[in-house]
Amino acid sequence: MENKLYTLIVHSENFAGLLSQVTAVFTRLQINIESLNVSASSIEGVHKYTITACTDRNNIEKVVKQVEKKIEVLQAQFFTDDEIYSHEIALYKVSMSEFESQSEASKVVRQYNAHIVEVNPVFAIVEKNGSSEDISALYRELSALNCVLQFVRSGRVTIPKSCIEPVSQYLNDRAKEHTNKKKK
C-alpha cells in the first residue's frame, strides 16, 4: 500500500497522561509523527489533537482503532489532504543586512503573502500563514537568498471539509444512551 500524509484528529476528555498514550500507539506501529498540535476544542472540557504522519491506509486505520481504545478518547478519525482544510504558521528570522541588500527578498515575502512582524538593525521576522507546501516553498526561496537565520513552523490546525461535526454527534448519541440506560 502507498504511503501518504494522513491527518489524525482525536477528541478526548481533558485527562492527564493521555497524550503519551496516544503517541505510544504510533511508536508501537513504527510510525513517525510529522507534526502534533494539542489544544482545547470548541466543546468545553474536550481536547483536540491534530497529528500528521506518513503511512499507509492499513496502518492509519490500525492507529485510529488503537487510539479509540483508550478509555478517555471520545473519537479518532483520519483524513487525507483533500478532505480537510489545514493551515500552519511559520516564522523566518532573516538577517537584516542580507535582506536589505537583495531587493528579491522583500519581493518574495510579498509574493507569498507573508508579513514582516518585527524589525531591528540585526534581523527581521517574517510570518507566514498557509499550507505546508507554501511555507516550505518560502523557506526554500529565502534560503536560496542566504538570509535565513532561523526557521520555525507550527503543527497543523485542521478543519474537515465535511459539514457534519462527528464529535458533537457522538456526544449527543452518548448522552441519549445514558438517559435511556437510566430510564431502564
Partner: peptide, 8 residues
C-alpha cells in the same frame, strides 16, 4: 459506575 461517555 456503568457509563463513561468516552468509552463504548
Amino acid at each position: 459506575i456503568d457509563f463513561i461517555r468516552s468509552y463504548v
